[in-house]
Simulated assay, not measured.
Amino acid sequence: MSVVRPLLAAALLATALTLSPGPPALAGPAAAPGLRASAAHADAAPLEDYAAYEPPVRCSPRDRRGTKALARWTVRRFGGGWGGISRSCGATPSEHSEGRAFDWTVDVRRAADRRRVRALLDALFAPDAAGNPAARARRMGVMYVIWDDTTWSSWRRFAPAPYLNAACPSKRECSRTLRHRDHVHISLTRAGARGRLSWYIGRV
């Protein structure tokens, strides 16, 4: 009897382990291929045209889900800091007051940050596999980007152009922040901010 009982117990344990459905944690890794498939589906969706300028018209400082997705992607992929999305409404209209602009904290005085910004711009404005220029920026609904006295606007096909804030008489009389030398500003269309364009498939 002393030998049979341990053998029986071992057999029952082996049967229980064989029939066990396994830990629910298996559902976690299984989600990753689905996300990759969604991203691939986004790339296969029809490519949006260059975004038209949509001026801010109301005070609604709430972080939009598309803007948050773009901000997370930027910081996770390129580093830098989270400078914020929404701001309280002031006298001057801003996409920040509609939750559709993201400030990415980087410093032009740091070589590593300059490389980060260059990598972001390359990622936004690179052609896709079919040769369509600025494909990712168009799928995101990027209206314009500002960094280091320069702006890249969708209505100019993202060609770089000199930038000077309206509040600055000249560069020398302008702060580093208004010159966008301590952050990158990214403004989105309303559809992009709401996550309703192709890049946001599987991300919002």
Rank of each mutant, 00 (worst) to 15 (best):
L26V: 11
F102A: 02
R76L: 12
G90N: 03
G90T: 01
D43H: 12
W82P: 03
T74G: 08
P55R: 04
A27N: 08
A37Q: 07
G99H: 00
V117K: 00
F102Q: 00
W82K: 09
D113K: 03
A27L: 08
T92F: 11
S60C: 13
R116H: 08
A52W: 09
S97P: 07
D63Y: 07
R87D: 01
V117T: 04
A42S: 13
L35A: 09
P61F: 09
E98H: 06
P29F: 13
A39P: 02
P93A: 02
Y50W: 13
A44Q: 14
V117E: 03
G81I: 09
E95S: 10
R62F: 08
R109A: 00
E54V: 02
R114A: 00
A111C: 15
R100D: 03
R110E: 12
A52M: 09
E54I: 05
L26I: 06
A25V: 03
L47N: 07
E95D: 13
F78L: 10
G84D: 08
R110A: 14
Y50P: 07
P93R: 00
L26S: 13
R87C: 01
A101N: 08
A42T: 09
V57A: 15
T92L: 11
S86N: 04
Y53M: 11
A30H: 11
P46I: 05
R76Y: 05
G80H: 15
P93D: 02
A31D: 13
A51K: 02
R64C: 10
R62L: 14
A119G: 09
G79H: 06
A31H: 11
L70R: 04
T67D: 01
R100A: 02
L70A: 11
H41R: 14
R72F: 06
G79K: 11
A30P: 04
A31K: 10
A45L: 09
V57G: 15
Y50G: 06
R36H: 05
P55G: 04
T92A: 12
D49T: 12
G79W: 00
D107T: 14
E54Q: 07
C89W: 04
R36E: 10
T74P: 01
S94P: 10
P33M: 04
R65H: 13
D113A: 03
A44D: 12
S94T: 11
R116I: 08
G80C: 09
Y53T: 13
W73R: 07
V106F: 09
S88N: 10
A119R: 14
R114N: 07
C89N: 06
R114C: 03
E48Q: 12
R87Q: 04
A30F: 05
G80W: 15
W73T: 07
P33K: 01
